[in-house]
Each structure stands twice: as structure tokens, then as C-alpha cells.
């Protein structure tokens, strides 16, 4: 469907023009300008320096770490999101309402609080700290901690996209498939999954973008060990604090590119879903 505003030709076109002008100006000022500035600064000292900044071992490691985190977190969240949405949409069970609310919690809690909670739970002085230490398990200031916090922060994305679709669709198609002799797995892969595929992809893109960009929660649990537990967003801050502005902007440009790619994919998916 399309919503096209029609303008009464007798009316002055001034007001709409003014509003559109303001909207464009504000967007340029607070979105486009900073983005352009990132690239301008990243390339300020030329291609060579930009490439050298990106090839710096610490930066490469940060990119690698961020990718690993996303590669672990996104599939888990997809599985969790489908499972949770399916359970909520198809079954009535005790605690269903709690689950619905619980899925939303990460949206309303500041990521830094999540980070601190994990610290208090798994940290050296934390609740599970002594046990973890006794078993020689390092959660805080290591990959598991970063993954856990990122998972917490991105948990709602897939479930929230998939759930309304599943609820709207109801279970009749699945029941029809069952009466036609389909096994549980066949029902899932041939009926349930194709129905939610665009919403699922959309949720996965949002989830990836967030997982890659997460800063607050991760900064608490990572410990910022350069070349070990420094994710890309943390690395940008670190470089910036080192007064290496060009390096910081070079790293930031990678993040920005990732975000732009996610944005394009998201827009494409939206068009696809709308069709």
C-alpha cells in the first residue's frame, strides 16, 4: 500500500516545503554529516595510512573478535528467537506471560547494567566466581563474557520480529500439514520456516548490527585487553583515548560500513516483506 499526501492546489505550498526543508536539514546535520566526517577523518592522512591503520594487529584482532562474537551470538539468537516465538504463539503454558515480558527486558535495561550483573555473577568476587576459578573457567574479561553480554542485549530482536507473524498466521497451516502426513520436522522446514523467513532474516540483520556495535555492556565485562578482549567498538574508544584520531576513525569506518550494509539489507528486506 502507498500513502501519498495530496496537496490542495489552492493552498499555499509553503508549509509542506518548510517542513520538508527542516527535516532534510536536520537529517543532514545529525546523521549524514557525522557519517561523512568519519570517512573524511579516516582518510585524512591518505590511503596508505588508512590501510596501515586497518592492518595494525590490534585493529585486525578487534575486527576478528567482533566477527567471532557476531558469528556465535546471531545463530544462537535465531534459534532462541524461533523457539521462544513458537512456544508463545502455539502453546498455552504456565509462565507464558513471564516469558513474553522477559524477552523484552533487554530492550528496557541499559546494557551497562547487564554488564554489571554479569560481572557480579561471574566475576572473581562474584556469586559463581569461586566455583569458576576452582574449575579454571575464565568467563569475565574473556570471550565467554563478551558473548554472554552481547547475547543478552540482542536477545529480543529475532523473537520480536517473528512472534507477531506467527501469532497472526495461527496454527491452521501447520495442522493442515500434519493431517497431510508431514512429520514435525517437515512441518517446521516446509511450512513454518518459509512463512517467517523474511521476518527472520530481518530480525537477524538487526541482531547482527546490534551485536557488532554493542559497546556499553561489553565494556564492563571485556577488560579491554588489547589484542585479546577488545572488540571493534571498544577498540575505537581505546585508539581515541590514545590520541590516535586517524586510527580511531579508520576503525570506526569499518563499523560504519557494516552498519550501512545492514541498513541496505534491512531496507531490501522491508521492501520484500511489504510486497
Amino acid at each position: 500500500m502507498q500513502a501519498v499526501a495530496t496537496v490542495n492546489p489552492n493552498q499555499s505550498a509553503l508549509a509542506p516545503r518548510l517542513l520538508i526543508g527542516v527535516a532534510v536539514a536536520v537529517t543532514l546535520l545529525i546523521v549524514v554529516a557525522p557519517l561523512a566526517y568519519i570517512f573524511a577523518r579516516a582518510f585524512a592522512e591518505g590511503w596508505r595510512v588508512y590501510a596501515a591503520n586497518l592492518m595494525h594487529p590490534a585493529t585486525v584482532h578487534a575486527i576478528w573478535l567482533t566477527s567471532i562474537v557476531a558469528l556465535i551470538v546471531v545463530p544462537i539468537n535465531i534459534a532462541f528467537g524461533i523457539a521462544a516465538a513458537w512456544a508463545i504463539a502455539r502453546f498455552r503454558f504456565w509462565g507464558r506471560g513471564i516469558l513474553v515480558t522477559a524477552i523484552e527486558i533487554p530492550f528496557s535495561i541499559s546494557p551497562i547494567i547487564a554488564g554489571i550483573c554479569y560481572l557480579l555473577l561471574y566475576g572473581r568476587q562474584g556469586l559463581l566466581g569461586p566455583w569458576l576459578q576452582a574449575n579454571d573457567l575464565q568467563v569475565m574479561f574473556a570471550l565467554p563474557g563478551i558473548v554472554l553480554v552481547t547475547m543478552f542485549v540482542t536477545a529480543p530482536f529475532v523473537a520480536r520480529e517473528v512472534l507477531p507473524l506467527m501469532q497472526a498466521q495461527g496454527s491452521e497451516q501447520e495442522q493442515a500439514a500434519v493431517t497431510l502426513g508431514a512429520s514435525g520436522w517437515q512441518v517446521f522446514t516446509r511450512v513454518t520456516l518459509p512463512n517467517i523467513r523474511w521476518a527472520l532474516l530481518y530480525g537477524a540483520v538487526l541482531c547482527t548490527a546490534r551485536a557488532v556495535g554493542e559497546f556499553g555492556g561489553v565494556s564492563v565485562v571485556s577488560g579491554n585487553i588489547r589484542g585479546q578482549t577488545n572488540t571493534l567498538p571498544l577498540h575505537v574508544e581505546l585508539l581515541f583515548n590514545d590520541l590516535n584520531a586517524t586510527g580511531a576513525f579508520a576503525a570506526a569506518s569499518v563499523l560504519t560500513l557494516l552498519a550501512l550494509v545492514a541498513l541496505v539489507v534491512k531496507a531490501a528486506l522491508e521492501a520484500r516483506r511489504g510486497a
Partner: peptide, 19 residues
Amino acid sequence: PAQKRRIGFVFQHYALFPH
């Protein structure tokens, strides 16, 4: 189980597979 009953069930709202 339903799968083994060889039933033809036609739902009120058809429940065709849209994809």
C-alpha cells in the same frame, strides 16, 4: 497420530500454504 490417519481435512479458511 494424525499423520497416520490418512485424513483429508479442509479448513474453514482453507489454510493453504501461501509460499
